[in-house]
Structure formats: structure tokens, C-alpha cells
Amino acid sequence: MRHRTRVQGKGRDNRLMDATRTHLLRNRLLPVVSIAAVAIVWQLVAQFIVQNKNLLPSVTDVLGAFLVLLESGRLASDFSTSLTHFGIGVGAALLLGIPLGMAMGWFRDMDTAANPIIEILRPVPPLAWIPFAIIWFGLTPVAAGFIVFVGAFFPVLVNTYAGFKGVPRLFVEAARVLGCTSPGRLIRHVALPAAMPSIATGIRIGMGVGWMCLVAAEFFVGGRYGLGKQLWVSYSLQQMSNVVVYMLLLGILGLAMDVVFRWYVDGKLLKWRTGEVA
């Protein structure tokens, strides 16, 4: 009797393990299969239907172009230039957007004073700032960074503001009763941590918008290097395979930054939110 129970139990364990294993396998395998399927269809269409490298380079064309670019060694400079533009823009957006959003969310007068200005400027597309970026900063990395800044600034500002507006009154009162009474300390010890999830969302959206602005910024104001710049240069030389290489690099790099950011925020900064329904 005992023996049989054990055998049964073991059988169930095995079945459970099999189920988890197939589940894992599926989760790993399906993305690979779908990417491979798209690549194959793309290759077939490009090679047998379009048959024109300039209209649609095939997968192998793109891979070849990538290897040539890799060998030339210029990709590293393109990467670092683009990251410099991006870093300037996002850095400035955080430096200005977070404090301003905090002040507007916390102090009613700040909100009333700054809100109309923000609301008028916010719908202006970042690319509409390109003429002034060039006039103010010349054809420099700062000008490209400025466009990224305009794109990243508003999401950071608006989400910080919303986070500070939404600090539960209960937390503020609990802190005041415990002896945390000055506005500075309330902001530091209560409002800032309470608003952190919202601020992190703002940074993430801002980084996304900033990254999209990067390509256009580099079209107009970049120097010799940069992923966006090279995309544009490749187009003017009709090297459409290279254009695809730069498109994919922009996509993958953007994704990588988002993944790293999310990993940091969810795993470290907002560990206390595990189990909460956002």
C-alpha cells in the first residue's frame, strides 16, 4: 500500500516536471521560431519576388553588410556617438524634469504658475525644435542632445508631477505625526519614495521617446558618426542593406536599454512593490 502510494506520487511529480519543462521549452522556443519564420519569409520575398536590393535587401544582404561594417570598426564610434547624444538629452531631462515635476506636484503655486507654459510647450513636436537647436548649439552633439532632451523631458516631468500629486495623504499625515514636519523632509522621506514608481515610469517613457528623437536629431545636426547619421548617409549612398543594419541596431539597442532599466527598477529600486498590483 505504502509502496504503491509512493509510486503514484512519483508519477505525479514526473508529470508535473514534464509539464513545467514543456512550458519552459515553449516559452524559449516560440520566440526563436517566430523570428526564424519572419527571416525566412523575408529572405524568400526579397530573393524571389522583389529581386531588387534597393527596394528590399534580403536577410543575407543585411548580414553581409553587417559583417563588413563590423570589420570596418566604425560601429563602435557610431554607438558611442549616439549614446553621447542620448546621454546628454536624457541626463538633462532628468536633471530638469524631476525637480520641476516635484515642485509642481507639491507646491500649488508652482503648479498654477508653470502649468500653462508646460501645456503649451508640451504638444510641440520635438523635431520642431531642430532649427533652434542648430542656431543655439551649432552642428554639435549638444544640439542633437537637445532634441533628445525635448522628447524625454515632458514624459519625465508629467509623470513626476503625477506621482507627487498622488502621494496618499495618509502617508503624509502618518509622517507628520511621527515628527517629520518640514516640507523638505516630507518630500525627501515620504513624497519621493511614494512617487518613485511613477517617476520610474516617466523615465522609461522619456527614454523611449528620446531614443526615437535621436535618429531625426542626427539626420540634421549630427557630426560624422552616430547610428542615425549613418542610416541617413547610407540612404543617400543607396546602400539599403546598411540602412536595415542601422535600423535593427537602433531597435536592439533601444530594447536592451529598456530591459536593463526595468531590471534595475523592478529588482532594486522598487523591490517593495513586488506583489502589489500596479
Binding site: A175, V177, L178, P193, A194, W272, E276
Partner: peptide, 20 residues
């Protein structure tokens, strides 16, 4: 005159700071 640690308070709602 205002809140003071001399008077502690326990609220009806859960008022613990979730980030601590």
C-alpha cells in the same frame, strides 16, 4: 498647535510606508 511625536497615532487605514 500641530502634529508632534508626543502624540502618537495609529490610523484606521494601513498607514505603513510600503517602501520601508
Amino acid at each position: 498647535r500641530g502634529p508632534d511625536p508626543k502624540r502618537g497615532m495609529v490610523f484606521q487605514e494601513y498607514s505603513l510606508f510600503p517602501w520601508r
